[in-house]
Design a binder for these strands. Structure first.
Length: 589
DNA sequence: AGCACCACTTAGGAGGCAAAAT
DNA sequence: ATTTTGCCTCCTAAGTGGTGCT
C-alpha cells in the first residue's frame, strides 16, 4: 500500500493577493530555460506518482474564452416560411447549418438530439413555438452565409491574415506559458471549448446535443497560494464575472478545469506534451513497460496454468490476460450504452464478437473498440485458449459477455501482484515498443544494397522504418478513415500501369530492348507504389509514434544508421521527446 | 465488493499549409 | 501557375486506472 504524502484537500484560497507574480527563471519562450532540464538533473528520476506532490509554486494566465456569438440575421425558414430568431436561437440554428453537409446531419439520433436542445430555446418566443419538426427546417440561407464567410476568409490577403494572427498572438501571449517551481512551461490547451453540437464518435446516443457555453463561473483555477490569481477576462457581455473557484491543490497537474455539459465529466487545462510533467510521466511509462520484460515470463506461466484450472473464473481470468498479452487488446471497462457508444475491449467482449470461421485454433474477433474503430482480426491462438474460449461461449446468447466472471479491476489487482505499477495498458506499450525494437534490429538484413542504390540510403532506411512502424500500428489497430480521394488515386495508378504496359508491348514490337528494360522498371515501381498506397490507406502511423513507441528506440536507430532524427519526428515530437535525445545508438528497449 | 469520482493518457478527424504533381 | 496531395497541428472525445467511500 502506498502512502499518500500530499495534502489532498483542495485548500480554498482567500481573496486574491494584490500582486506577487513569481518571475520566471530565465525564459525566452522555449520551455525549460534556466539551468538543467528535468531529465538532466540529479535525482529528477523520482517516480511519477498519482497523489504525489507535483509542484511547490504554480502560476499561470488562466484560460481564454471563445468569442461571444455575433448574430448575422440571415433568414431561417420553417415549413417554407421565414421565422425570426433571437440571437440565442440563431446561434444554435447556425451550429446545425454548419453541419448540414456532414453525415451527422442525416443521422436520426443527431437530428432528434439537436431538436431536444433547440426547441426549449425556441419556445421562449411566440414565433419559435411553431418549430417542432427538423424535417421542416430550412437552414439553407444560413449555410449560404457561412459558405460566403469561409470564401472571404480564403480570399483574404496575406497582409490581412498576418495582421489578424499578430493580434491573436498578442491577446494570447500571457496564456502560452505557466511558471512551475520557477520553470517556464508551455500550456497545452488554454482555450475553453466553444459551445457546439456534440460530435460523438460511432453510434453515440448523445450526438447532436448542445454543448453549453462555458463562463468564468464554471471554471476552477488551480495555482499556488502566493501566485497572482489570473484575472477574470471581460467577456464583452457587460457582466462582471468571477471564477467558479480557486484552489491550491499541489497533488495534481491541471491548471484549470470545468465540467462538460454533455456527460458531466471534467475538462482540464494541462501543460503541453513537451513540459517536464508530461515528459517525466512519459519516461516513467516506458521504463515501466521495459520492466515488464523481467516479469512477462511469470505472467505467461501463470495464465498457462490458469487456463487449465477447474475453476471457470480462473480460466476466464487467465484467458483474458492471454488475449491482452498476445493481441494487445485494451482492458475493456464497463460502459453504459444509454449514454455512450456501444464499444468493447477484452473484458467486455461478448459472444457475438467471437467467430470460429478460420479453422482449428483460429480465433476471429470482430468488435468495435475505442472510438468505434472496428477490430477485425483472425489469428492463431494456442489450443488451450481456443478450447477455453469455446467453452465460455456455451449456453450463452450472442449478447452475453464472453468473460462474465472477469472485471478489469481484478486483472489489475493480479498485475500489481506480479510487478509494481503493472496494469493492462502496460502490455500495449510493452508489445508495441518490443515490436518496433525487434523489427528495427533487422534493418541491416532488410534494407539491401540494391535498395539503397536505387532509393538512396536515407530513403531506403526510412521506408523500412515505416514498415516497422506499420507493424506496430497494425498490432494496436490504429486506423484512419480512408481518404475520399483514395479510390480515384488508385484508379489513376491503374491507368498509368495500363499505359505503361502498352508502351512495353510497343517497345517489344520495335525490338527496342533498352526501352523495354527501363519501362519494366517503371512498371515495377508503379505497381509497388499502388500496392503501398492501398495497403496503408487506413493505417494510422502517428498514434504509435506519439504514445507507444519508446522514442529512444527510434532515436538510437537514427543514430546507428545515420538517419537525421527529424526524418522520423516532426517538430512537436522532437520537443516532446527531448528527454530521450541523448540515448546511446546501442540502446535496446 | 462495487461504485462514483477524478486524474491523466490515448485517439481519430478537421483543417491549414507547404510540397509535389500537373 | 495552379491544382492536388500529404503532412502536421489542433481539437476534443474516449479510453484506463487509482482511490476512497458505502
Amino acid at each position: 500500500m502506498k502512502t499518500k504524502t500530499a495534502a489532498k484537500k483542495p485548500a480554498v484560497k482567500p481573496p486574491p493577493p494584490k500582486k506577487r507574480a513569481a518571475a520566471p527563471k530565465g525564459g525566452d519562450g522555449g520551455g525549460p530555460s534556466s539551468g538543467a532540464a528535468w531529465y538532466e538533473e540529479d535525482g529528477a528520476e523520482k517516480e511519477w506518482k498519482r497523489g504525489g506532490i507535483k509542484w511547490t509554486t504554480l502560476e499561470h494566465g488562466g484560460v481564454l474564452f471563445p468569442q461571444l456569438y455575433t448574430p448575422h440575421g440571415k433568414t431561417f425558414k420553417y415549413d417554407g416560411k421565414p421565422v425570426p430568431l433571437t440571437p440565442e436561437q440563431e446561434e444554435v440554428a447556425t451550429m446545425f447549418a454548419a453541419m448540414v453537409h456532414t453525415d451527422y446531419a442525416t443521422k436520426p439520433v443527431f437530428r432528434a438530439n439537436f431538436m431536444k436542445s433547440w426547441v426549449p430555446l425556441l419556445k421562449k418566443t411566440e414565433a419559435g413555438k411553431q418549430v417542432k419538426s427538423i424535417d421542416k427546417c430550412d437552414f439553407s440561407l444560413i449555410k449560404e452565409h457561412l459558405d460566403q464567410l469561409a470564401q472571404e476568409k480564403k480570399e483574404m490577403s496575406k497582409e490581412e491574415k498576418l495582421r489578424i494572427k499578430t493580434e491573436k498572438d498578442a491577446a494570447e501571449a500571457h496564456l502560452i506559458f505557466a511558471t512551475v517551481d520557477g520553470r517556464k512551461e508551455k500550456v497545452g490547451n488554454f482555450r475553453v471549448e466553444p459551445p457546439g453540437l456534440f460530435r460523438g464518435r460511432g453510434e453515440h446516443p448523445k450526438m447532436g446535443m448542445l454543448k453549453a457555453r462555458i463562463v468564468p463561473e464554471d471554471i476552477t483555477i488551480n495555482c499556488s497560494e502566493d501566485a497572482t490569481v489570473p484575472a477574470v477576462p471581460d467577456l464583452g457581455d457587460g457582466k462582471k464575472h468571477k471564477w467558479g473557484g480557486v484552489v491550491c491543490t499541489n497533488t495534481v497537474t491541471w491548471l484549470a478545469k470545468w465540467t462538460d455539459s454533455i456527460n458531466g465529466e471534467d475538462k482540464c487545462v494541462w501543460l503541453a506534451a513537451n513540459s517536464s510533467w508530461k515528459g517525466l510521466s512519459d519516461k516513467s511509462k516506458y521504463e515501466k513497460a521495459r520492466e515488464l520484460k523481467n516479469h512477462i515470463g511469470k505472467v505467461r506461466e501463470d495464465y498457462m496454468k490458469g487456463m487449465k484450472s477447474s475453476d471457470v473464473a480462473q480460466q476466464q481470468h487467465s484467458t483474458a490476460v492471454y488475449l491482452i498479452d498476445r493481441l494487445a487488446l485494451r482492458v475493456g471497462g464497463e460502459k453504459n450504452t444509454d449514454e455512450e457508444a456501444d464499444t468493447v475491449g477484452c473484458c467486455s467482449l461478448r459472444v457475438e464478437h467471437v467467430l470460429f470461421d478460420g479453422g482449428d485454433n483460429m480465433l476471429h474477433l470482430n468488435f468495435l473498440g475505442k472510438d468505434s474503430i472496428e477490430y477485425d482480426n483472425t489469428t492463431e491462438v494456442i489450443p488451450l485458449a481456443f478450447k477455453c474460449i469455446k467453452s465460455f461461449m456455451k449456453k450463452k446468447k450472442p449478447g452475453d459477455e464472453l468473460f462474465d466472471q472477469v472485471v478489469p479491476a481484478k486483472l489489475n489487482d493480479y498485475f500489481k501482484s506480479v510487478m509494481d505499477g503493472l496494469s493492462a495498458k502496460v502490455f500495449r506499450t510493452y508489445n508495441a515498443s518490443s515490436t518496433l525494437d525487434a523489427e528495427l534490429q533487422k534493418t541491416a538484413a532488410m534494407v539491401t544494397a540494391a535498395q539503397r542504390a536505387k532509393e538512396g540510403d536515407i530513403n531506403a532506411l526510412c521506408n523500412y522504418y515505416t514498415l516497422a512502424n506499420k507493424r506496430v500500428a497494425e498490432l494496436c489497430n490504429h486506423q484512419k478513415a480512408t481518404s475520399p480521394a483514395h479510390a480515384a488515386a488508385i484508379a489513376k495508378f491503374d491507368e498509368k500501369i495500363e499505359a505503361c504496359e502498352l508502351e512495353i508491348k510497343a517497345a517489344k514490337k520495335a525490338n527496342n530492348d533498352s526501352k523495354v528494360e527501363s519501362l519494366k522498371k517503371k512498371l515495377t515501381k508503379l505497381q509497388a507504389d499502388r500496392k503501398n498506397k492501398d495497403e496503408t490507406k487506413n493505417v494510422s502511423l502517428g498514434t504509435s509514434k506519439i504514445n507507444y513507441n519508446d522514442p529512444r528506440i527510434t532515436i538510437a536507430w537514427c543514430k546507428a544508421n545515420e538517419v537525421p532524427i527529424h526524418k522520423q519526428f516532426p517538430k512537436t515530437l522532437m520537443a516532446k521527446f527531448k528527454w530521450a535525445m541523448s540515448v546511446e545508438p546501442e540502446y535496446r528497449f
